[in-house]
Design a protein around this nucleic acid. Structure first.
Lengths: 210, 210
DNA sequence: TAGATTGTTAATCGATTAACAATC
DNA sequence: TAGATTGTTAATCGATTAACAATC
């Protein structure tokens, strides 16, 4: 049982999963750690170390079976059991998330969308009717939801997370700059900070041109 | 001149910048590394080490001036000089990016949007008319653009990057799964892989519930 | 069996943390 | 001056890489 896997290894798992899915689709049966590392722009050592955090999935002298390694990593990620999630905020970013992501392949099921702006309430996204944020509490009390996707500005997120936390939501996919984990220690928070990403790109462009 | 700053440090710079901007807005004049580290959920040592990669911005016995440290980090990131960028793909994600990001505060200026789908061509986003992808080459030849934002599916990105690279674009903000940096070694690529982010969240939720 | 490639231990490298002299 | 806090060197910690025995 997971002996404290480092976050670096965890963040590589989705990439292994993606590359193995591609190889499987391309009809590749087996792959060595050396070949897999070249696809990953990594080293064979790292591939073997990473995989052996979870078990010995290879066969000496042969390599790894693509499809069964892919399945193993999917299982390690926990993609087979879907978490019900609500999306808070149906603005531009919320709509992009709702329509763009294949949640069911990523471990989640989007079950409800909530929004403050009356012009958006009642519209449909991905077959889901956008509800008023006033209906959120009632909805959460009646449905099994454990995760919230937050695509609202920071100032709206702070009071919203208070409500969500009170209602038992502990897992957050957070696009805002509100620091959920600092205020609520027993939460699992995955931040997507696209502004930080752009600033990092800016730095690296300038660094590159020196 | 930047003595090979580690990517870990670089990725923390936008966070310093954000927190310092907040403190400045809140009217805070000075801050110690200890206080800044608690805002950052980091250590005082790390804050001082990070900052001293770029110079001694503090004053012994006093701490750091919030506004001038913020300015310094903005300058290090290179936010004062805007890079002209085109957005390729005006689907859901592209529209969210175009309308949602404050590019001018993040080191970029969005100057053109291009799309294949005829239903979207001619629509306006952020005051910019969406153009046909057939006009891309002509546009790039006539305008000074050094960066492309890619919000299209992987299969469209591969041939598109070939065209962009040929036209001299070396900097990419990439939302697709096409591995630009592997094929073109002299590019600067910042990937945003939201699917990977969700899978990581899934892993961590399950890990947390064990 | 011989060749290939894993699983795993050891060595290296680099990042984080601690300590403290310098100094405002 | 005394107190506070930096800048910087040294110590620690952990991640990556290398090496190689195990084994298919």
């Amino acid at each position: 049982m997971a002996k404290n896997i480092s976050i670096q290894v965890i963040r590589r798992l989705p990439r292994y999963y993606r590359f193995l899915s591609e190889l499987e689709r391309a009809g590749v049966d087996k792959i060595s750690s050396t070949k897999l590392s070249s696809v990953m722009s990594s080293t064979a050592s790292q591939v073997r170390q990473d995989l052996n955090c979870f078990g010995g999935f290879g066969q000496q002298g042969y390599g790894y079976s693509v499809s069964s390694l892919k399945d193993e990593i999917g299982r390690i990620l926990g993609l087979q059991h879907l978490h019900n999630a609500v999306l808070l905020g149906a603005g531009n970013m919320g709509r992009a998330i709702a329509t763009h992501m294949n949640f069911e392949e990523l471990g989640f099921r989007l079950v409800g969308i909530f929004e403050k702006d009356h012009r958006l309430i009642g519209t449909m996204l991905r077959g889901i009717t956008v509800q008023s944020d006033e209906q959120l509490e009632g909805y959460l009390l009646e449905h099994e939801v454990d995760t919230a996707f937050l695509s609202l500005p920071k100032d709206s997120v702070e009071p919203l997370v208070e409500q969500l936390y009170r209602l038992g939501i502990r897992n957050y996919w957070n696009f805002s700059h509100f620091d959920i984990a600092k205020k609520y220690a027993d939460t699992v928070v995955e931040n997507v900070h696209m502004g930080d990403s752009l600033m990092t790109l800016c730095y690296r462009i300038n660094e590159n041109n020196r």
